[in-house]
Design a binder for these strands. Structure first.
Lengths: 167, 167
DNA sequence: ATAAACTTTCAATAATTATTGAAAGTTTAA
DNA sequence: TTAAACTTTCAATAATTATTGAAAGTTTAT
């Protein structure tokens, strides 16, 4: 496999993966492109490489910046804007995990909590609803707390203590 | 909030959540309905409750069975089939995690591995591609291993040892 | 102040994904 | 073996989501 082929494969794989953890294809592909680029890219560069329109590029770059994983960089002597992505995978994972928690998990925890707190009228179906949403509420809450804690560990938590403890 | 409202809220919340961890709305809603139901439901029951067509119900029940979180149960004296879902949240989480790992994470790990193994031609861009896909490969691999290990712990790993160790 | 260089917005359109419903298929009872 | 009860399949259609491109907006250089 040559460079160009490998690069395309990486971008398309990362792109389709993206769609299943909640971000769209173009957004994931742009991030992938920046991730393996040796220098910041302009909007022009991105459009060219990925064959997507200016509007699409603009919108998705903004989203990536909202997520906090892409930043504008100023290239001296250049008028246009250049973009780069977080290059450290650990930090990347941390940012993504935190953002997903805030956007998706936290709201669900809130709703589950509301539902599990309805008044018990004594009927079997109400008891079941309360019991099951309570269980789901606790699981979600605990899993969210855990993942955040894991991701906040600075250096490689994986190969260090945590992982070993679970052997 | 009364029972009916709470129930509808639960089903719709779970339904929209579903779409962002890779299963479709109808599938997630059927699972949610079964999850809070006190007894197995027939296809008729599901169609009626969720106002979806027979075909849709049939297809999504099959998918849920493929995932291993819904099972057919025979109700004596009844001709038609009844369905029920895994009621233990921990076991549910385990099955979902395992299945996602198998369907989504493992294939990505494989591709990242392939890409990170291309021949280094000495150019800067090739070096960067190799370096970054290698980093991503390791992270994904480790995270996948960890989540599987966590999920395989039988009883409540969360409130017990693992969680405490990360304080 | 003007215009060129560049970016953003958003209505229109395209692409993708989910849903329907009816025909075909299967199972069971008699 | 027939037919009623039930389930599955799948082409057509609807709903949703992503993308385009051109007009409007902004910034910078002169």
């Amino acid at each position: 496999m040559k460079y160009q082929e490998a690069k395309e494969k990486f971008i398309s794989t990362w792109g389709s993966l993206g769609s299943l953890w909640g971000i769209n294809k173009a957004m994931a592909q742009i991030q992938a492109l920046l991730f393996i680029s040796t220098k910041p890219l302009s909007m022009e560069d991105v459009m060219e490489e990925l064959k997507i329109s200016r509007g699409n590029t603009s919108m998705n770059l903004r989203q990536l910046m909202d997520w906090g994983i892409v930043t504008k960089v100023l290239v001296s002597g250049e008028r246009k804007e250049f973009f780069t992505t977080e290059k450290d995978v650990q930090e990347l994972a941390r940012v993504i995990a935190k953002e997903r928690s805030r956007r998706e998990i936290k709201p669900v925890i809130k709703v589950l909590n509301e539902i599990s707190s309805i008044k018990d009228d004594g009927s079997e179906k109400t008891k079941e609803l309360i019991k099951q949403t309570k269980a789901l509420h606790n699981l979600t809450k605990d899993a969210d707390a855990m993942i955040n804690k894991l991701m906040d560990q600075k250096q490689n938590w994986l190969t260090k203590s945590v992982f070993k403890l679970m052997k």
